[in-house]
Design a binder for these strands. Structure first.
Length: 562
DNA sequence: GCCGTTTTCGGCCCGACTGTTTTCAGTCG
């Protein structure tokens, strides 16, 4: 079977890591990493492209295209095999240690024969590293510390976990003295570390930061880094006159920053976190806010969620940035559970919560009975709930819509018969079982559900649980095509545990004219507030108000669904 | 390795901080 784009990207990335350990120049290494990024973002399988077509993609040239073709035709890349033979496999893991980069890995390997984390730890504890130039007591201690962190670290944080870290840190800071930047501000579904811009002086802030830190990694007048729990928090200090350029710098992404600096260079300027400087005249420009800096560069302000260097900079220059959906546009929730299945809220509770949130409608979507674990609704229970909803709707306020989250069974049939589904306002269909099916079977299974005339929304389309369970194998390009063809909406599940589908697929779906439903999948009251996470993902997927089903009024929604 | 309305060769973002340095390399974001 042809390799997936993800597998190809992993291979190219791994090649970059191996070259880095060998001591290849950084630009060549970066070229591999950049190519891997591009490959990940491709919608169509690269297997269908020729070398010439591939080399038209940004960051992929003749050489890497040839390697991908070789991989398709022979199942391997000769150069990659050679690299793997000459470099011990455990060395790549050493790159993941804080404070250990490619130069250090290379030296450890060549000078001490260290090829994995265990050997490095033994050498550091035995004080054997000190004979190496640039290594002393502190460096050894740092390595022992970062190995400990590495061992009990659990990857990136979910957004709700990131918020906990932010709350811990900002609880001791003066209100108004800080702004959270980084990937958190860009709305990413997971966050590596926390970046904060502070307009208060380091002399006031550093003691406060130390007081909440489990470890002070480094402390300076321009930047301080601390560890809170297992998480790194970086704080940059600035004054209000330079706030815009500092916030822009710290918000990133890295590729976005590099591209922006290239543009500044073309304009004869140097761009950094302190502003823009004209190289000829030496004239400095400072920016108190990001908007002013964008305008200086001749472009429209780019929302943080779009700053990934995937075309937004060109749009900003041509004044064609999309107008993105906002939290205030959301008029209802299209996936919530009640005590009818595994939720804790009664039908009337749902209506009350909807009213409190200012929603026009809430779609009640309990599980269908086929999902034994959740104690779902059978045909009889569906009719009983329909009646209950009807009664609740006699009170004015948030309108409850009758729906279901019906199982997509292993063979693509649904967990309830059409005779039941046809009485419901809106039907969400989701996969909950048989997650290990082979890709083609899973894909056809979902497509067959999309072709059921009663199915309106595909729930959590990849089934991923962030940090716990990967997305199941599915050909998303075919799913998106089928959704477009059948007029089925796709869910952006706003639970911070899911955020499914991800932003890359949202953008692909949007480009095919597929509508998205941003839904919380709420099981209890607090879950309704997760809507904001879903809106951020929609924005990262370039969605405007009209791309989102639940920005419609109740009447528009029902008309659209018919 | 990629890229190019000044370039097919010679560039490739820019700065903070640490440790072990007597002027800087390495790492990080």
């Amino acid at each position: 079977m042809a390799l997936s784009n993800r597998q190809i990207a992993e291979t190219i990335r791994h090649m970059g890591q191996l070259l880095e350990i060998l001591g290849e120049e950084s630009f060549k290494v970066r070229a591999y990493y950049r190519a891997a990024e591009t490959i990940l973002r491709q919608e169509k399988p690269l297997a269908e492209k020729t070398a010439a077509e591939m080399s038209r993609l940004p960051g992929i040239g003749k050489n890497i295209a040839a390697k991908i073709v070789e991989l398709h035709e022979t199942g391997r890349i000769r150069e990659y095999e050679n690299l793997r033979e000459s470099i011990p496999a455990g060395l790549v893991e050493l790159l993941e240690l804080d404070g250990v980069g490619p130069k250090t890995v290379h030296k450890l390997w060549k000078k001490f024969g260290i090829v994995n984390v265990d050997e490095l730890e033994a050498a550091a504890r035995g004080h054997r590293l000190r004979s190496m130039r640039g290594f002393g007591e502190k460096k050894e201690a740092e390595i022992i510390r970062s190995i400990a962190h590495h061992r009990h670290r659990s990857g990136r944080m979910r957004r709700d976990q990131a918020e906990q870290v932010i709350d811990t840190v900002t609880a001791v800071l003066p209100p108004g003295s800080y702004t959270v930047a980084g990937s958190f501000r860009r709305g990413k579904s997971t966050v590596g570390d926390i970046d904060i811009v502070s307009v208060a002086s380091p002399f006031t802030m550093n003691p406060l930061l130390s007081s909440v830190a489990d470890e002070v990694i480094d402390e300076g007048e321009r930047r301080t880094s601390i560890r809170v729990g297992a998480r790194r928090v970086d704080v940059r200090f600035t004054d209000r006159a330079h706030f815009g350029s500092m916030l822009m710098y710290l918000t990133g992404s890295k590729l976005f920053n590099i591209h922006l600096r290239n543009i500044a260079q073309e304009q004869g300027c140097k761009l950094n976190e302190y502003g823009i400087e004209h190289l000829n005249t030496g004239e400095p420009f400072t920016f108190a806010d990001e908007e002013a800096m964008f305008h200086h560069l001749g472009m429209d302000p780019i929302p943080p969620e779009l700053r990934e260097d995937t075309g937004e900079i060109e749009c900003a220059q041509q004044h064609t940035l999309p107008s993105l959906v906002e939290p205030g546009h959301i008029r209802g929730d299209l996936h919530v559970h009640s005590t009818g299945s595994d939720g804790v809220l009664g039908i009337r509770d749902l209506a009350r919560i909807g009213e409190q949130r200012g929603y026009e409608y809430i779609l009640v979507t309990d599980h269908s009975a086929s999902l034994g674990v959740a104690g779902g609704l059978d045909a009889h229970a569906v009719r009983r709930q329909l009646h209950e909803i009807e009664v609740a709707n006699r009170d004015r306020g948030c309108h409850l819509l009758a729906g279901i989250e019906v199982d997509i069974l292993g063979d693509g049939r649904l967990g309830l018969p059409d005779s039941v589904l046809q009485d419901l306002d809106i039907v969400v269909a989701s996969v909950h079982s048989g997650l290990k099916q082979e890709q083609d079977i899973m894909t056809r299974r979902i497509i067959s559900a999309l072709h059921n005339e009663h199915v309106d929304i595909l729930g959590h389309p990849t089934g991923r649980l962030l940090g716990r369970r990967p997305a199941f194998e599915v050909d998303m390009a075919r799913i998106i095509e089928a959704a477009a063809e059948t007029g089925t909406a796709m869910e952006i599940n706003a639970s911070p545990h899911r955020l499914d589908i991800d932003d890359i697929h949202v953008r692909q779906a949007k480009e095919h004219g597929v509508r998205m439903a941003i839904s919380t999948d709420a099981h209890r009251k607090d879950d309704f507030a997760n809507m904001r996470y879903g809106v951020a993902i929609a924005r990262r997927g370039w969605c405007g108000r009209n791309d989102i089903l639940n920005t419609k009024s109740l009447n528009e929604l029902l008309e659209f669904i018919q």
